[in-house]
Design a protein around this nucleic acid. Structure first.
Lengths: 113, 113
DNA sequence: CCTTCATACGTAGCAACGCTACTTGTCAGC
DNA sequence: GCTGACAAGTAGCGTTGCTACGTATGAAGG
């Protein structure tokens, strides 16, 4: 999968995985890899800054804990994050329908408003 | 539609509209607007540089003509562009299936390879 | 005649975003 | 002692689309 294709949709993916329960950063990476059947294998340099961005935006909150001597920062969705995810989902549907109209062979030429 | 969502998919869209026949830049903008029912209203500062990029990459070729005293640079797909479009289509299907698995409610948890 | 709008092309500079490469540290297994 | 999985992070870069301009013609309206 081409890497830069994700542009602008990563935040939505992160919110979506956190919707099912709180996770720490490393676990987010594994969740993405598992739920995408290996398609999404994102480096830590992508995930950690993105989670910090979401936290600055108020869409997730984090707390530290120590498990087996390893420091973990666990993230959970906030109400704001849940609302944002709903918007991202709507945006995704609109976006994929629009682009699909050009790129999917079965797409009709235009759906009248 | 969020603007930056297009990131990485614009080239594919341009190749797709040119697949149906050669067009000049301004007409490409109108074709995108028409076929997307107004969802894609892209500024010239986006389209013109993108077409030049595609030409540098060898995916389109251009020629000048004068119509009603207006200079037009008309673009057409090359064989390389047609091949690239096929790849972009495959990439789009993979990408939209993967992201859709997280963002579309009907998506199954994972499709085993 | 003059202004405005649609047509038509283009560039410069900016901001967003994800990636590469690197660093730090613990624990398990050889 | 060393390697590899686990766990977190930052600095700097490259790509890409957008905003804001600039130029020019033809048609329409006053």
């Amino acid at each position: 999968m081409k890497a830069q294709a994700l542009h602008g949709h990563l935040d939505a993916l992160l919110l979506a995985v956190l919707e099912q329960g709180e996770l720490h950063g490393y676990a987010v990476i594994e969740a993405l890899r598992a739920r995408s059947a290996g398609q999404l294998d994102l480096p830590t340099g992508t995930i950690y800054p993105a989670l910090r961005r979401l936290e600055r935006a108020g869409h997730v909150a984090s707390s530290w804990s120590t498990v087996n001597g390893r420091e973990r920062r666990t993230y959970r969705l906030t109400d704001s994050g849940r609302a944002s995810l709903a918007g991202e989902r709507a945006g995704w549907r609109e976006f994929s329908a629009t682009v699909g109209r050009f790129l999917d062979p079965a797409g009709p030429p235009a759906t009248p408003a």
